[in-house]
Nucleic acid binder design. Structure first.
Lengths: 225, 225
DNA sequence: CTGGATGGTGTACTTACTACACTAACCAGT
DNA sequence: ACTGGTTAGTGTAGTAAGTACACCATCCAG
């Protein structure tokens, strides 16, 4: 097959998108990584992502690459920043527009693909050596995620549609890495008027069942105060 | 002159940087714009910016374009976001990495250049019609600037090295577009322990002279609480 | 019916924020 | 030298927000 050639009067960088997808598994903040099937950094772990199609929107590209490489779709996505150090990719000049994404800890089925030998969750405390500048990108994403906890409803993106207050508190505790007082936490959350009781309860073991709640404006991150 | 040709197996977008430079003039938040000397949007006003050199760092590109088109340098710069809607430039696919920047209201000498017929400050409330999606970029920059007022020391970037508390309060008032209580403002700022008295005073008219202050960590934006 | 586990609730205290008014210092003009 | 105008500089009392803290409820397993 004879590849088509694209000619420009000035050199153009390549543009990629990369996605930092977080979830919480077993009370641990985890990141989705793929094992690179091709050079460069073949066999190393990296963020899911890839080259922008020439008439594709940036966010659409991030979603598409995530879907292609891991099978995951329909989740919250937000632009994180753009990385373009001149030598970050050994092949050619590459500008990467990065996104961070959150997924509830259920229905997660990462799968391999043509570009990714394997896809897997890594606890953020036990990351392998990463390709490109992806360690730096993950570090920035984590900072941003934690910062947004304080002034947005982003935490709900890590829970299923209905959830208990204990589950919600656990999300905050894992991300902030500190224990929170149960009564104060519940008081503060309920004072914000952003969730309502479903009327149902959930039994998760041999103890009293918990009331379940849902977000008033689901799948939408709002800035609060 | 015979232009060199650059050939790729896949189409590459062009990459530009654009800078939203704010200052405060006459108690009004203003943005630096340039009048485009060349098509597209010839004669219209736009943000200073231009194409990335192939081995140039992104932030360096933003600084260079700002210097070339307006003569301004040595100011605070921070990445804002990346805009890449497929049709945002009529010539070809262009991804723009945008920065926002702040300048104290003194030593400002915008000047014309080869790409810019003219450079001028526009009050944010009286922007002309703008080229590309630059109106949207300015809108995002303004949101971000106001948000950062609340949790960072960014306001000091709009003041000279030494300043009075009244000048600082005026910056906050202009950006927040509301009057602040003098005593509470001073109390809150001083409680943060980020500025110190210089020992000098400044006479700015026929009234009592004001103590002047300076930032403990000058030219460095910190996150506070 | 008992023990173990998580769910659910209120109050007192401490800290941060808000509202608010007068004197001090300088200059200009008479 | 005195007056009026203009900005600089200061404290307190009330209100709202956040923190610390302990016990009973409900379910399941054995």
């Amino acid at each position: 097959m004879n590849p088509q050639r694209y000619i420009y009067a000035y050199p153009h960088p390549a543009v990629t998108t990369d996605v930092v997808l977080f979830t919480i598994q077993m009370d641990t903040l985890s990141v989705l990584l793929i094992e690179r099937r091709n050079p460069p950094f073949q066999g190393m772990w990296a963020l899911p992502g890839g080259f922008l199609d020439i008439s594709e929107d940036l966010e659409a590209c991030a979603k598409r690459e995530l879907q292609e490489e891991t099978g995951i779709e329909g989740i919250y996505l937000e632009q994180l920043g753009t990385f373009g150090a001149p030598q970050r990719d050994p092949r050619e000049r590459v500008i990467s527009v990065t996104y961070f994404a959150l997924s509830p800890s259920d229905h997660l089925c990462p799968s391999a693909s043509s570009d990714a030998a394997e896809a897997a969750w890594y606890p953020i405390t036990e990351l392998p050596e990463l390709a490109f500048d992806h360690a730096q990108i993950i570090s920035l994403a984590r900072q941003r995620l934690i910062a947004k906890l304080g002034y947005s409803t982003i935490a709900f993106q890590m829970l299923p549609e209905t959830f208990t207050l204990s589950q919600l508190q656990s999300v905050y505790e894992v991300l902030l890495n500190e224990a929170l007082d149960k009564r104060n936490f519940r008081k503060a959350i309920l004072a914000r008027n952003i969730i309502r009781e479903t009327g149902e309860t959930a039994r998760h073991g041999n103890h009293r069942p918990a009331k379940t709640y849902q977000v008033l404006n689901p799948r939408q991150v709002e800035i609060i105060k």
